[in-house]
Amino acid sequence: MGTPEFPEFLRPGGAITGPRPGAARSAPPGGHPVELGLWLFILGDLTLFGLFFCGQLAERRSDPELFRAAASVLNQTFGTVNTVVLLTSSLTVALASDAIRRQRNRRAAALLGAGLALALTFAVLKVTEYTHLVADGHTPDESVAFVYYFTLTGIHLLHLLIGTVLLSLLLRRVLVLGSDQPVGRSFAEAVAVYWHMVDLLWIVLFALLYLVAGS
């Protein structure tokens, strides 16, 4: 019997529904099924970052020169390369979602692997950039512009690392299942949407910190 024995007071009204792996998730009428709760999280996190963007720009109004100085130290080419890296990883993850839907797991695994490699490339480039900046004496102690640069990119990097763990979990799940077995849709969808959010946030961060700040 799969039903665990709990003391009386822990039982839900006397009835424990047995495990129902793969229980169907309700799809809202019209359009393709999405998990609205997931979007509560995504839009919420986007809004948190939106406030970060506004905070940085509001701070810049009081002393634009500091932000110009910071942007002039940043390497725009580095930032551009990282943007392209993340955009490409988003592409591979989007294609992997499509492959998972078509139950082409080998293809999905290859695409997810590529996405993971690009994610790690981004992280390595970012850390390299940090190392160069700190070696040249540009730390958050230098000015409020660097405070914003390091905290916003740092929080973004943390998001990216969480996304990397999620991608690895999804990849493992796809590999364990082998070819042609359906992968749980809601997890795959959540990981993909989260990953695209990481990409989306970097697009704005790149524009604000590297380009607009220098104007």
């Binding site: 393709h32 999405v34 989007a94 695209h196």
Partner: peptide, 27 residues
């Protein structure tokens, strides 16, 4: 700079619509 900012938000919209598949999501 304002063109760059508009580009950035236009890009986020494309990412949402195409990659996050919002184009087929509920209204």
């Amino acid at each position: 700079a304002s063109v760059v900012l508009v580009f950035a938000f236009a890009k986020t919209w494309v990412v949402g619509r195409e990659f996050m598949e919002l184009r087929s999501a509920p209204r």
